[in-house]
Write a protein that binds this DNA or RNA. Structure first.
Length: 440
RNA sequence: GCCGCCGUAGCUCAGUGGCUGGAGCGGCCGGCUGUUAACCGGCAGGUCACAGGUUCGAAUCCUGUCGGCGGCGCCA
């Protein structure tokens, strides 16, 4: 009754209302007419159901004429008898008595033939597609699961500023924003602020927009994306990687629970995901990763070089679950990632990690323990050409009761794309922003 | 930052120096009582991205501009 007697398509397809007079409303997804009949398929947020009109069965013949001329995406309220009908998609259809047009749609520009460019130009309309609807539902589950995961473990949601005066990631490009007569930048991580907050809340997380002005033209990059980060006091590298594994496992479990229908619509093999979460996700070191590349792929990587996309994807051919890779060479890591003096490696390595997704999806998480030595951090900032003076407030977090702490960031769109089995993160966000696109 | 590709009807494309630039889909008109992004008949629809150049002649060749896409690097 909350829906004023309207029943969603998904509910109607369950069939228990068969034989009853029902009402539903939505948008015309498909329509074709054949003499004194009109076949329409009505779409709502839950799914689609066929509504069939016979001229002679209509309580108002004008509505039959309206139905005949109504174009795709016209909004309608439909009333009729729900019947079992094997010829209808979904097995049930409404045999229509009343067909009220709420709004006659103009010619909908998106038809059978679609190019990626056209669909991106018309993303505001393409959002109505079953594909985008399915992905957006999965995205909603993913972000919901992240909140649930951390709150269940005693983490507080903490909201960082989006306008930030300094950079953090050592070289990553920032979007500059005019701020009255000053300059500021859009956030590329909450990290510096999160590290201030753990001294009160201890365990915190967020799901927030992140901006990177990198001209990266790949299926894995966006200039505006959502990052789910966590930061925890008293936590060292190993525990941090375990939290990351549990989080990813939890997200997959939730999507399997809530979005089986959407995964199937997208052609995602759910068995792969089901099997994956039964297994432990392995942790290896960077040095071990090089060994695997050499011995099992015949790929020689010089120790000290960062793993590139090609090496990561070759490495992941040997795994069918996400893998945590720790202890990358300090030289290629950001200033705040501390050297692990006890590590067994050919050179200085950092207490840091990435999580790589299987099936060619690559890096989904990056994180580390945080350096507690102001002197060390200053040394590496200067090496990167940064002025340590800009980081005084950050160094303050090390001056008053500093403790070991760790954190990481998870790329929401990358996780959504991977779990959904789609080939581009640009479809994992409603309105993607790339180096060459800020519309619509 | 580096390398490559594309731009022709609302959409997807064909046309690569020579007659008035084509098809399918979509739209409009008509037909059809079981359609499955139906079928049959008819109609409308073009700044060949833009600017300049070469040529008797340019959608087609050249130069530039604009817009978009892909790969690498970098990252989540």
């Amino acid at each position: 009754m909350l829906e004023l007697g309207f029943t969603k398509a998904e509910r109607l397809l369950k069939g228990d209302k068969a034989g009853q007079r029902v009402k539903t409303r939505g948008w015309i997804y498909r329509t074709r007419h054949k003499g004194k009949m009109v076949f329409t398929v009505i779409r709502d947020s839950s799914g689609i159901i066929q509504a069939t009109l016979f001229r002679g069965d209509m309580e108002d013949e004008n509505e039959f004429e309206d139905a005949k001329k109504a174009l795709v995406e016209s909004s309608v309220e439909v009333e009729g008898i729900l019947v079992k009908e094997p010829r209808a998609p979904g097995g049930y259809e409404i045999q229509v008595r009343r067909f009220r047009i709420v709004n006659f749609a103009d010619v909908f520009p998106i038809t059978k033939d679609q190019s990626e460019e056209f669909l991106r130009d018309n993303r505001h309309l393409w959002l109505r597609s079953r594909r985008m609807t399915a992905i957006m539902k999965i995205r909603s589950t993913v972000t919901g699961a992240i909140h649930e995961f951390f709150r269940n473990r005693g983490y507080y949601e903490f909201t960082p500023p989006i306008l930030q005066p300094t950079q953090c990631e050592g070289g990553a490009t920032l979007f500059e924003v005019k701020y009255f007569d000053m300059k500021t930048y859009l956030s590329q991580t909450w990290q510096l602020y999160a590290e201030a907050a753990i001294f009160s809340l201890e365990k915190i997380y967020d799901v927030a927009p992140t901006f990177r002005a990198e001209k990266s033209r790949t299926p894995r990059h966006l200039c505006e994306f959502w990052m789910a980060e966590m930061e925890a006091a008293w936590m060292e590298l190993e525990e941090c990687t375990e939290v990351a594994k549990e989080e990813v496992g939890f997200i997959i479990k939730k999507v399997l629970e809530k979005n089986r229908k959407e995964l199937e619509l997208l052609g995602r093999d759910t068995k792969v995901l089901e099997e994956m979460i039964k297994k432990d996700f392995p942790t290896i070191t960077y040095t071990e990763a090089l060994k695997i590349l050499k011995e099992r792929s015949g790929m020689e990587v010089e120790w000290g070089k960062d793993l590139r996309t090609i090496e990561e994807s070759e490495l992941m051919k040997h795994f069918d679950t996400p893998v945590v890779v720790t202890h990358y060479p300090k030289e290629v890591m950001a200033f705040y990632k501390p050297i692990d003096k006890e590590a067994d490696a050919p050179g200085p390595v950092a207490k840091c990690f990435d999580m790589l997704a299987p099936e060619g999806y690559g890096e989904i998480i990056g994180g580390s323990e945080r350096d507690t030595s102001i002197e060390e951090m200053k040394k590496y900032l200067e090496k990167d050409g940064e002025d340590p003076k800009n980081y005084e407030f950050y160094f303050d977090t090390r001056r008053y009761g500093s403790v070991p702490h760790s954190g990481y960031g998870l790329g929401v769109e990358r996780v959504v794309a991977w779990i959904s089995g789609i080939d581009n993160v640009k479809d994992a966000i409603p309105f993607p922003r790339t180096p060459s696109r800020i519309r619509p």
